[in-house]
Simulated assay, not measured.
Amino acid sequence: MAGSRIKNEDQYEALKDKGYSKEKAARIANTTNSGKKGGKASPYEEWTKDELYEQAKNVGIDGRSKMNKEELIKVLRNN
């Protein structure tokens, strides 16, 4: 895509093929760790609240500043 702002086009297209919305696929494909092979990251439960907050910020989750650690984990998994 010429002029696209998607950081990882292959991942974006693969997510769309799996049924993700364009918006959600773009958010995921534009995260800083986009394209890294799955299974390498530690589970969200092992992340600090600050790390979870930053990830929520990276993917554009609204209301994150009022969320506790468990809420951040839930919203990140369901985003």
Rank of each mutant, 00 (worst) to 15 (best):
M1A: 13
A2D: 07
A2V: 14
A2C: 11
G3N: 13
S4N: 08
S4E: 01
S4D: 00
S4V: 00
S4L: 02
S4K: 04
R5L: 15
R5P: 09
R5T: 15
R5K: 08
I6M: 02
I6T: 10
K7C: 07
N8E: 09
N8K: 10
N8G: 01
N8T: 09
N8C: 07
N8W: 05
E9Q: 07
D10I: 04
D10N: 10
D10Q: 12
D10R: 08
Q11M: 13
Y12C: 03
Y12V: 00
E13L: 09
E13A: 10
E13F: 15
A14G: 05
L15D: 01
L15S: 00
L15K: 03
L15G: 02
L15M: 01
L15I: 05
K16H: 00
D17C: 05
D17T: 12
D17A: 15
D17Q: 11
K18G: 01
K18F: 13
K18M: 15
G19R: 10
G19N: 12
Y20W: 05
S21C: 02
K22G: 13
E23H: 12
E23A: 10
E23P: 05
K24I: 14
A25N: 04
A26E: 11
A26I: 13
R27Y: 13
R27A: 15
N30A: 03
T31V: 11
T31L: 03
T32N: 15
T32R: 15
N33Q: 07
N33M: 05
S34V: 00
S34M: 00
G35Q: 04
G35P: 01
K36G: 03
K37F: 03
K37R: 07
G38V: 02
G38C: 07
G38T: 00
G39P: 08
G39W: 06
G39H: 04
G39Y: 12
G39E: 03
K40A: 15
K40D: 09
K40L: 09
K40M: 11
K40N: 10
S42M: 15
P43E: 07
P43R: 00
P43A: 12
P43S: 07
Y44F: 15
Y44I: 07
E45K: 02
E45G: 05
E45D: 14
E45L: 02
E45A: 15
E46D: 12
E46M: 03
W47K: 01
D50N: 09
D50K: 12
E51A: 09
E51F: 01
E51K: 10
L52Y: 04
L52Q: 00
Y53Q: 13
Y53E: 15
E54V: 10
E54F: 11
E54P: 08
A56F: 01
A56K: 05
K57N: 07
K57Q: 07
V59W: 04
V59Y: 04
G60Y: 04
G60V: 06
D62H: 04
D62W: 11
G63D: 13
R64E: 11
R64G: 06
S65W: 03
S65K: 14
S65V: 05
K66L: 10
N68G: 01
N68D: 07
K69Q: 06
K69F: 04
K69N: 00
E70D: 13
E70A: 08
E70S: 13
E71N: 06
E71C: 10
L72Q: 08
V75N: 03
V75D: 13
L76P: 04
L76D: 03
N78M: 12
N79Q: 11
N79W: 02
N79V: 10
